[in-house]
Design a protein around this nucleic acid. Structure first.
Lengths: 149, 149
DNA sequence: GTAAAATAGTTTCGATAATTAACCATTAAT
DNA sequence: ATTAATGGTTAATTATCGAAACTATTTTAC
């Protein structure tokens, strides 16, 4: 077996274990966010993700549509709802009046702080059984994944 | 700073880098599956995930609803659609006639092989820039995550 | 400098998908 | 033998999404 065959097998193994691990993990995280978001704040997980993207700087309808891979009208409608709920505000950019800048309100930020704090807490508890070395490996491999995206 | 404080900071760091890495990665994977599933096989990503769960052994409506965290009627409707498409079959369990066992048809399995093969290929190409050590770390950390879920 | 094209976003409308509530069939419990 | 619980479906309602058409603004081309 030559070198490239062996490395491609390792790669395949990594991909396979990824599929065994991440979908259930992601599902658990979703379930947890749903609990907090729906039961405490009455927003859906999808709305949470929109708020998350806005907080991370995707602050226009187009940017959100691109980031979430759904249509602009769909985003526009969700934004409507979140504006109605008082979680975000639309402000027209005076430099280019076509742009509509999206920002979290104080309420929106507080909500995100709460959900994120809660979720982080839960994830830390979930990850707690890992050894220091395993935590380290996890962090490193995430960092290396982040580089190649 | 004591030992537990330090380890909890590491944990928090791992959680944070997770949030920076995983959602965009998952989004890319979804986008890729969507391309293949929709354009080549005319099923949605959600339908793909249902087929994936069935193939992995969640072979009843209740099990799927539990696994995907959505209502049983929603699953039942999706199953209807997939049965119509000839991708899965319902068979009543003679031992307990309330049970309806779900199985992929030959077509369903072929479709999953195709989408999964394609996705795995794409992921392998995406992960290819990683070094052998990074691949190793990734595999290990996912194995350790899998253990604690 | 104006007409055409491109960009950003919204509205409308039709289709899909989700939820709740009510329901049937079957099995388990008292 | 009733009653309760389980597994699943059906029906009605609501929510979400996308395509097409529309408004407003800015950029490009002539």
């Amino acid at each position: 077996m030559d070198e490239s065959t062996r490395s491609s097998e390792k790669l395949r193994q990594a991909v396979d274990v990824f599929w065994e691990t991440f979908p259930p993990l992601w599902r658990m995280i979703h379930a947890h966010i749903r609990e907090v978001a729906v039961e405490q704040f009455n927003i859906t997980v999808e709305q949470f993700h929109i708020l998350r993207h806005i907080r991370r700087g995707q602050d226009s309808v187009s940017a959100l549509a691109e980031a979430k891979d759904i249509s602009r009208p769909a985003i526009s409608q969700s934004v409507d709802l979140l504006v109605t709920k008082g979680l975000i505000v639309r402000t027209i950019d005076p430099q280019d009046r076509r742009h509509v800048k999206l920002d979290l309100t104080a309420d929106g930020n507080a909500l995100m702080d709460a959900i994120f704090g809660d979720t982080r807490q839960w994830m830390m508890e979930t990850f707690a059984p890992l050894s220091a070395n395993e935590i380290q490996a996890l962090t490193c491999s995430m960092e290396s994944l982040k580089k190649i995206l």
